[in-house]
Design a protein around this nucleic acid. Structure first.
Length: 743
DNA sequence: ACGGTTATAACT
DNA sequence: TAGTTATAA
């Protein structure tokens, strides 16, 4: 009771946003839907006029039309084939900004809700206004949950037989008056002032954004939220501590925050509870023995209207994610589809991350890919990897690499087995790019400085955002000890940047920035111990020796060679290991075959991952999928869809980009290899024009890589060819082949 | 076929 | 500690 908390909830937010954009919709029954084809689209917001006709969320557009023929259905914008909620997120920012004028601690709870801790503000006003009375007209839209009047909607109390609107208003005023006049404790007075501030906040929100909202004011978050829902559009409710028990007596458990799911069901099913008041009937011991010490203690207090969850000052989200469902028959059953959607989602993520860096000076460090697959029940799983580039294609490739283990379909035929029902990407672990960026990667080693300088100079040519963030990470990481050197080497193999025009289904043109590959992080250590140390992996920095972007080929090698964490997704963790073969450097596929999709990555991934400590089996739920820990390479023969597939794939896949180097259209999934081609071409040109200089690390590195690669060459035929990779002739043959198949 | 997100606790 | 899953909104 030491706090005064307000929960502001925007009324049918999306609808209001649309009505503001199109004023003609104001006052009319309307709803916002996404996707129109399936039964008129799914409703995600309903205006109050439409609610009056029985339209609800979780209803299809068609049903809404039946209930309310006049309803205006506004469609959520669609981008890259998926719903795009940017418009609403932006509107939310407007609101949050207004709220922040009233308190330092504003927590964005969702796109349309925010908690505000008004304690400090209330305290200030008490000192200033001292004994000033709070009059009813200062709380024009405020309701009080009091002890002697039946709350809950229009259920007549049987007392007065007046007209609805009037009686309601009279009741509100009467209660408010009674409360203001009767309270004697400090707590209620503070809540009253909180209500006053809430009125001001809501007025300001409306004035500055045009949006109406409701609010709840109480001593904690749960009660503020509960109170807010008592009087909804454009009103607010104060819930004094004294009124809690009365309210609880008729409040169904599942209506309260935290009790809407399993917990609430459990309380009802196992403890026979029905209303919130029932919680308070059990002793602390009883609750704890039934639900555990922690939950029990928490429940005990909630039952008494007490809760301590703090309002966490945070206006920005902790993660940026996007996803899409592919229900029923639309499930993704081919690699083509999976790749296509991964790219679409990645494009949105990229856009949002760039904006994030731009607007809030921060960048995400982790990318989590989640999938839900057909099964009974549907199976979910997620994998994450260190994010080193916001580049969509890079993200998409890495994402594919880490979820390919879930595809148990025959490698060929481009099938994806259990079909995917949901695909989503989420970027998190944001770090401010402000500070860390400046203190460059002061790698003292000659090699280090050599590559470092190269990297930075080349990145200057690129888009400011992403490239800079990469550098900052380099600096950050190079900070501690021995990893520095590795970074330098990694940077050599890491992709450089290059701008590419992406043609999306022939409709949009987009500029892609750097090409550093995500999923490319290195632990640098070969033993499991270190590797298991998950997040400790150093990242590959972006370095370049040419203006061409390259990853697949050389990058892969460096990974398998040095055993740089490579594609290994973040650390150990059960399932991943299953896919892993062993940390031994196994053949690294080569451009030759896997030219198709950046599957190359996947392959490496498997071979490397195992560096992690071998533990656990852990539940692994029902994960059929990769579970078959067939450590062998057989499991994921990583679609070595060979040459022809490549061409075929390229043709079928609409996700193609134009290579700046040669002007050819190339599938983004082949880009790394394609660019390797140019890169190698350049090297060859250099070699031909001037005698080989194998002095300081540079050339040797390349040669080394080539060797290892060859030694561990994938399967028969090509491995031979590879083994000579370090020689000119090999390079030559490589070019030749590439040229033949790709062009 | 309740979609798209976001957050946090729990488990390992 | 941190990745993955479950829960809740």
């Amino acid at each position: 009771m030491d706090r005064v908390i307000a929960l502001v909830d925007m009324d049918c937010f999306y609808v209001q946003v649309e009505q503001r954009r199109n004023p003609a919709l104001k006052g009319k029954p309307c709803a916002v839907v996404q996707y129109k084809t399936w039964k008129g689209g799914g409703i995600i917001a309903v205006g109050y006029e439409a609610r009056a006709h029985g339209v609800t969320r979780n209803m299809r557009g068609d049903e809404a039309k039946e209930k309310c023929p006049d309803i205006a259905l506004v469609r959520v914008p669609e981008n890259r084939g998926k719903a795009d909620l940017t418009r609403y997120r932006n509107a939310c920012v407007e609101v949050i900004e207004v709220l922040c004028k009233f308190s330092k601690s504003v927590e964005r709870a969702s796109v349309d809700e925010a908690y505000i801790d008004l304690s400090d503000e209330v305290h200030k006003r008490i000192e200033r206004l001292e004994n000033q009375q709070i009059s009813i007209d200062m709380l024009p839209n405020t309701h009080i949950v009091d002890w002697n009047i039946n709350e809950d909607t229009g259920v007549t109390d049987g007392n007065t037989g007046q007209t609805e609107p009037e009686s309601a208003q009279d009741k509100r005023v009467a209660e408010l008056f009674q409360w203001l006049d009767s309270y004697g404790n400090k707590e209620d007075k503070r809540l009253a002032i909180g209500g006053l501030i809430a009125e001001e906040m809501r007025a300001a929100v409306f004035q500055e954004t045009g949006f109406r909202c409701s609010a709840g004011v109480a001593h904690n978050k749960v009660l503020a939220k509960l109170a807010c829902g008592l009087h909804k559009p454009n009103q607010q409710t104060i819930l004094p501590h004294r009124s809690v028990q009365k309210l609880y007596r008729t409040m169904p458990i599942n209506k309260v925050r935290h009790f809407g799911g399993k917990l609430g069901q459990q309380l009802q099913d196992e403890l026979g509870m029905q209303y919130m008041a029932d919680i308070g009937k059990l002793t602390l011991k009883q609750l704890q023995s039934q639900l555990g010490d922690k939950t029990g203690a928490w429940l005990y207090e909630i039952g008494r209207g007490i809760e301590h969850e703090p309002v966490r000052p945070r206006q920005l989200t902790k993660s940026v994610g996007c996803g899409k469902n592919f229900p029923g028959k639309t499930s993704l059953a081919t690699k083509q589809q999976v790749k296509h959607w991964l790219l679409q989602l990645s494009l949105e993520i990229e856009e949002r991350l760039v904006t994030e860096l731009d607007m809030n000076k921060r960048s995400a460090k982790l990318l989590t890919v989640s999938v839900r697959m057909v099964g009974t029940p549907p199976q979910s799983a997620s994998r994450s990897f260190k994010l080193v580039s916001t580049n969509a294609e890079s993200i998409a490739r890495s994402a594919l690499a880490v979820i390919q283990c879930f595809n148990v379909a025959g490698n060929h035929q481009g099938a994806w087995s259990p079909p995917i029902l949901t695909l989503s990407l989420s970027a998190s672990k944001f770090n401010d790019t402000n500070e860390s960026s400046t203190q460059s990667a002061t790698s003292t080693s000659s090699i280090g400085s050599f590559f470092t300088s190269r990297a930075s100079s080349s990145s200057e040519l690129d888009l400011p955002g992403p490239s800079q963030s990469i550098e900052s990470r380099v600096a950050e990481k190079s900070g501690h000890g021995k990893k520095k050197k590795r970074n330098s080497i990694e940077s050599f193999f890491a992709p450089s940047q290059k701008k590419l025009k992406t043609v999306d289904d022939g409709n949009e043109l987009k500029t892609a920035n750097d090409g550093s590959d995500n999923c490319m992080k290195g632990t640098g250590s070969v033993h499991s111990g270190d590797a298991a140390n998950g997040g400790d992996c150093s990242e590959i920095t972006s370095g370049s020796t040419s203006n061409v972007r390259r990853h697949g080929f050389f990058a892969s090698k460096s990974k398998s060679d040095v055993c740089i964490g490579g594609e290994k997704p973040m650390s150990s963790s059960v399932s991943q290991q299953e896919d892993c073969v062993s940390n031994t450097v196994i053949s690294t596929p080569n451009l030759d075959e896997d030219s198709d999709d950046g599957d190359l990555i996947t392959y490496n991934f498997k071979t490397n991952a195992p560096t992690v400590a071998s533990e656990s089996i852990s539940s692994d739920k029902q994960n059929n999928t990769g579970s078959t820990s067939d450590g062998g390479a057989a499991l994921f023969p990583d679609d070595q869809d060979t040459g022809k597939h490549v061409t075929q794939d390229t043709k079928c896949d609409a996700d193609v980009v134009e290579c700046d180097k040669c002007g050819n259209m190339v599938s983004v999934w082949e880009l790394p290899e394609h660019l390797d081609f140019h890169f190698a071409m350049d090297i060859q040109a250099q070699m031909n024009s001037q005698p080989p200089v194998h002095t300081n690390g540079v050339a040797p590195s390349v040669a080394n890589v080539g060797k290892k690669l060859g030694a561990s060459g994938k399967a028969g035929q090509n491995s031979k060819k590879k083994s000579k990779a370090s020689t000119n002739s090999t390079l030559h043959s490589f070019f030749k082949r590439k040229t033949d198949t790709t062009f």
